[in-house]
Design a protein around this nucleic acid. Structure first.
Ligand SMILES: [Zn+2]
Ligand SMILES: [Zn+2]
Ligand SMILES: [Zn+2]
Ligand SMILES: [Zn+2]
Lengths: 137, 137
DNA sequence: ATAATTCCTCTAGTGACTAGAGCTACAAGA
DNA sequence: TCTTGTAGCTCTAGTCACTAGAGGAATTAT
């Protein structure tokens, strides 16, 4: 039987975050000690590691909730789980694309400034006028 | 004299967002009509376009506030403005790096699943065990 | 004059936590 | 056994950059 602090140390998930996940329905409400403190078992540890890993990979809470639900029906086909991952990959790629455009534009803007007065500053001028940009954002 | 709705249409910034920018101190409190409605002039339009463009480039509100303050001292050297842009570029690059790692890991995970049952699903297995990952996140 | 639209302020909600207040439970040492 | 210190509990509010909605007033068009 682990306290919430033990669980936290072993998974690297902070104590308030564990309580938050319980509130969000990712973790079942834990058993309680006589003094009303949460007590966890080994499978809670696995569940929490799963959640943490999914979060580290950028999945949001509704997606994780769905994956947990799916993982409890081992006989079902896994298309839905695969789709969640694939959709997330698409979203990640879109973010990368947007950020690359920003990176490109920022590089260009910064390199065009000679670093003298604000009056001539290309950074300020570029911000004032999107017409100076190469692409859209 | 423009109403807040006119300003919104010409800049593409939504009406509540304009009021929010005023509250955040990015725009000076506008003059009011007899009936207490905001009335804007041409230079408010430029200011708002500046803010919008800076936001589109991903700058946050404190950074924009600082850039606006700087832009009102044309004789000062522009190192601080350039630094804000450069710092932002660094942050953008860091985000891109993180997302590329995620992209790589997600691609790998998805391609390893044969798409049969949940029991064998590589997506679920990979989420359960970071040891199956190639990198850190 | 009336109706339709726009405007006002204020509050609360978003996502995924984090911080803090005020209180209680538990574990270890004297 | 008592005491102290750490860890736990609940509840509220704050983060960021907005967005949505309520309830009412002003403006514009017909
Ligand atoms: Zn400059
Ligand atoms: Zn631009
Ligand atoms: Zn699968
Ligand atoms: Zn991993």
């Amino acid at each position: 039987m682990l306290s919430i602090g033990d669980l936290s140390k072993r998974t690297g998930v902070k104590v308030p975050t564990i309580r938050y996940y319980e509130q969000m329905g990712l973790i079942e409400a834990a058993e309680r000690s006589e003094g009303n403190q949460r007590r966890y078992e080994r499978n809670d540890l696995e569940r929490l590691a799963f959640i943490r890993h999914a979060r580290d990979l950028g999945l949001d809470i509704p997606a994780i909730r769905e994956l947990i639900a799916l993982s409890q029906h081992p006989d079902l086909p896994c298309v839905n789980a695969d789709r969640i991952a694939a959709d997330h990959l698409v979203a990640v790629r879109e973010k990368i694309e947007k950020l690359k455009k920003l990176e490109h534009e920022l590089e260009r803007i910064i390199s065009h400034c000679d670093g003298h007065s604000i009056e001539d500053c290309y950074v300020i001028r570029a911000l004032s006028d999107h017409g100076l940009c190469e692409g859209e954002h």
